[in-house]
Nucleic acid binder design. Structure first.
Lengths: 231, 231
DNA sequence: CCATGATAGATAGTGGCACTGTCCACTAGC
DNA sequence: GCTAGTGGACAGTGCCACTATCTATCATGG
């Protein structure tokens, strides 16, 4: 198909498609002439993904490019894909200043946290820098927040990751698996945080009504957390 | 103190402080003359918080204003504070278009999800719209993603919320409690997602090496992830 | 008293980013 | 041939988070 049909089917304006092509978010079509190129389903699919990442999720164009590059270049290796995809994501706020990422005064605390959780991750994992920076920010705010308080969060994060990996377990096609991994991790983030807030609201109301007792509300519905197998 | 000292102590340029004053992110000082005002510790504290929200977390100025307004206007009611603070946060991508938030074709699915989880939340909770939009995006991408797949995430979100609420349980001072709630929910978000990614990496490697078994690493050969003390 | 510097308030400007408009040479398809 | 469409290039737009500058005070030291 040509660019006008690509635009029609993806809902993205032609000029924006050209922009994405320039920026490397979309792979070029097969050129049939100096001013003619042929696009296919993969372009439609990828355009929709780009719009989801940039428009819905709010990723910057640069971050989206990195993420997509990671997915489509190593589609054969799910583990590698996971690492790259999620590494490039990090957060909207960490654009630039990649140099100081590696060195943070709180990195030892992060290592202690990972050790306490029993996790084995690569040294350069960007997530470590994010955690370090968060600890740093909390300290600057005067909050006495120790890395130990992140341990329960880490344990729950492990369960979330288990659900994530279960979600891509059965996919055979490498490309589809990579895309699914990307979608599950990146696009689900706002939903997860929204669920957290909804749960906070629910439990806050429940605790208010039932007294300041333990985390699980006494008789109340309290969130219906089923006892999933031990982490 | 005067504005120059406020600038020095908070690390925020004077011009930026004026900007925040204009935008309502910082409460005005006590005016002592047409061109003189007195600032105090509360301004220093709040400025640091603003910088954390806007700079580190990447919140828009408008969103930060809403969040802070919610915190400092109803400091007496923790439950109310939670609701407002977390409501205003939502996500960076949902600025504008607040009108269509209420009506989403997928809202019934979200209600079904909340029902399955046993949660009781207010109808206008912004988190619901975020979840609805995520389901919508996933559907547009052709992913066959049912709301039922969010149930395990919801259960884990409930546990996270329980940890969150535990973290603000014992605080007596209402203002401090409100601030802590804000910090725990908003500033911790990137860290939580980073932990999720780190856990994915760890477990992906573990599953790869040990087959499709449990999320915990088998023997954990303890590579270079030792908790080295401060350099 | 008055020079000096800081201050509040207002207005305009800056730089970055994600597009968007426009122009050109050329091609496809009638 | 003729018209609509195309790829490529480049400038322009709108938004946003600041930032610079200007003015009319005000505070203080000498």
């Amino acid at each position: 198909m040509r660019i006008s049909e690509l635009s029609r089917r993806s809902g993205v304006p032609i000029t924006t498609i050209k922009y994405y092509l320039r920026e490397g978010l979309l792979h070029a079509g097969r050129a049939t002439a100096p001013n003619q190129a042929e696009y296919d389903e993969s372009h439609v699919r990828r355009l929709r993904l780009v719009r989801a990442l940039v428009g819905v999720r709010g990723l910057s164009v640069g971050a989206a490019k990195e993420v997509l590059g990671g997915v489509y270049e190593r589609e054969g290796d799910p583990h590698r894909v996971l690492g790259l995809v999620l590494g490039a994501t990090a957060d909207a706020a960490d654009t630039g200043d990649a140099a100081e990422d590696a060195e943070s005064p709180r990195m030892p605390e992060v290592d202690a946290l990972l050790d306490a959780l029993g996790w084995q991750v690569s040294d350069g994992a960007p997530g470590k820098a994010v955690v370090a920076r968060t600890l740093d920010t909390l300290a600057e705010l005067g909050t006495d927040y120790d890395w130990k308080r992140l341990v329960p969060y880490g344990e729950l994060a492990a369960r979330i990751a288990a659900v994530d990996l279960d979600g891509i377990e059965g996919i055979r096609d490498p490309l589809e698996m990579a895309e699914r991994a990307l979608v599950l991790t990146v696009l689900l983030e706002p939903a997860l945080m929204a669920l957290r807030r909804l749960a906070q609201e629910h439990q806050s109301a429940a605790r208010r009504g039932a007294g300041p007792e333990g985390p699980d509300a006494p008789g109340a519905p309290a969130g219906g957390v089923s006892p999933s197998p031990a982490p």
